[in-house]
């Protein structure tokens, strides 16, 4: 038997204590405000590109506005996802399960960011694909 009350044992272990709850909450606030602007912009970008033939999609994402909006939405979005999922994990899981879940969500989020940046960089930085060339390769 430990001569310490549960309250005493828990004291100082809250999110506002030695950990980083305040910074985490603020990062959710900042990313959510950014996403208020980026979400409608991203919906418009995808709606404009979906249904175009391949060379037109390629050319579309070579332009600065669609490429930057897509990159920002998915990077800020996945960071918001990592932080938001962390809140859920902290509520629903403990111990090893919790650590594995935090790790998995972070690796997943960063993998999506890497894939998106690669795809956009490849389209934005390569010379414009002529429509004829696209047909020939097909």
């Amino acid at each position: 038997m430990r001569y310490i009350t549960p309250r005493k044992a828990a004291r100082g272990l809250g999110a506002a204590g030695p950990s980083t709850g305040t910074a985490q909450h603020w990062s959710m606030t900042v990313s959510s405000v950014a996403l208020l602007i980026l979400t409608p912009a991203f919906i418009f970008v995808v709606a404009s590109a979906l249904g175009l033939p391949h060379h037109a999609v390629f050319a579309y994402f070579s332009r600065p506005y669609p490429a930057i909006v897509t990159a920002l939405f998915l990077i800020v979005g996945m960071l918001h996802y990592i932080n938001g999922t962390r809140i859920m994990i902290d509520d629903y899981a403990d111990h090893t399960e919790r650590r594995v879940a935090i790790l998995a969500s972070q690796l997943f989020g960063w993998a999506v960011i890497a894939v998106v940046v690669y795809a956009l960089a490849r389209m934005a930085l390569s010379p414009v694909v002529a429509p004829v060339a696209a047909v020939v390769v097909n």
Binding site: F58, T70, G77, V116, Y118, A119, L120, M123, V137, N138
Partner: peptide
Amino acid sequence: LAGLLLIVWWLVAAATGPRAFA
């Protein structure tokens, strides 16, 4: 995430080439 991953796949396919994009 389901829809987002679909869009991400579609973007990577567009960057990869006409066959993947199709």
